[in-house]
Computed example of a mutant assay.
Amino acid sequence: MTNRTWILAGAATALTAALGLGYGVGRLTDKAPAQAPDHGEKEAPPHEEGFVALGAADAAKAGVLTVPVGRGGGSELVLPGRVALAANASAALGAPVSGTVERVHVAAGDRVAAGGAIATLRSAEGAGARASVDAAEAGARAARAAAARDRRLFEAGVVARQDWEASQAAADKAQAELRAARAQVAAQGAPSAGGVAVLRAPIAGVVTRMDARVGGFLTQGGLVAEIADQAQVEYVLDAPPASADAIHVGDLIAVQRPDGGQAGARIIAVAPSALGAGAAVVRAKPTGPAPQIGAIVSARVVLAKGEGGLTVPSEAVQTLEGRSVVFVAEPKGFRATSVVTGRTAAGSVEILKGLNGGETLAGKGAFRLKAELGKGEAGHED
């Protein structure tokens, strides 16, 4: 009996311990979800519909090139051409006086400001010209003093009028000789009394050629250096005889760059070509960044404008969800903008509605933006 009692008591104790352990485990299990870290995906940032975030540098790397909105709608002419320095954007510096090169201040490839030192010469001719100025200044002072003295004597009745007038004429002559001597010195680079003259850049730009060498001798008129302002460029285009008369100064044109993109320009001059037979050379000033000097380009010129307004390249127009869109460039990316299209001709599409004409949009590679926008929309739906 006693053994049975102890057995029952032990069983009760074991049951109580098991229940307590189960309760404790249950409490821990209930708390576990609250304490466990959340390993789920974070909420996606809000998606801006119709916008592709892509900077200008990344867009260029991806093959997306921007183009300006064109105007026209009439017949077009494609002109071959090249990028060249604009008028007055280059200069050749010659030696104004013969002399020995004492110092060369710049080398080919260096950038100089207008008036910057290029080379220093020492010239015997320059020293002689400066001496002539000094002599002319002394003669002019003496002649002015003589004329002033004769005037006082004439007013006092000591000398005749013709004597005063003769001395005044001599003073005027001496002054003219002084002006001529000063002009000669200025033309020779304004040498010092020792004949040292500093030759200076007539324009700002890059030194493209340097012919002066220290210790070398330059003759008057000899080439010292060539300078070009490579920031000032223009398009030089060749127009055929049949259409030269239809091209006018002030017309806007679209230039096809070597990389496949487009740039805007305005015609500034139309002149007969050296080839004759009615052909013309057309010069146009870029309205935006231009390719490097020497690049081969082509330009679309609208000859007869129709009633259509704005035009864009055909590749700029994409179909998105059944509607025609173009991707307008913004500071941080491209925005899909719905447009109403009109006629299509010569690789261009007429835009009847949706643009105001001042936009810059994606041309070549616009389909990549469409694909990227499709990825963004799909991710947003998930």
Rank of each mutant, 00 (worst) to 15 (best):
A87F: 12
V317M: 01
A187Q: 04
A186W: 00
A56D: 15
K42D: 09
G99V: 02
S273W: 06
G306F: 04
E381W: 05
E41N: 09
T29F: 04
A142F: 11
V312Q: 05
G63W: 13
A183P: 03
A279N: 09
V133C: 00
E372S: 04
K31L: 12
Q232K: 11
L355Q: 05
A147F: 03
G189F: 10
A186V: 13
G358Q: 09
V224T: 02
A146V: 07
A62H: 02
P45H: 07
S132G: 13
A271W: 01
T341F: 11
A180E: 06
A269Q: 13
G379P: 00
L21A: 14
G205S: 01
F367V: 13
L320D: 08
E315M: 03
A176K: 09
S298W: 01
A254D: 14
D172F: 00
E234W: 14
A225H: 04
D38G: 10
V301E: 00
V69F: 10
A176W: 13
L153Y: 03
V67N: 02
L28A: 10
R209I: 01
Q162N: 03
A32D: 11
G126I: 01
S167L: 00
D229V: 06
S314P: 00
W164G: 03
G205I: 07
G379R: 10
K370F: 04
L275K: 06
G379I: 05
A57M: 01
V312A: 05
A265T: 08
E43C: 02
K364V: 12
A131Q: 14
A290W: 04
A138G: 11
D211P: 00
A186Q: 07
R161L: 12
A107C: 00
Q256I: 08
R141Q: 07
V196Q: 06
E49S: 14
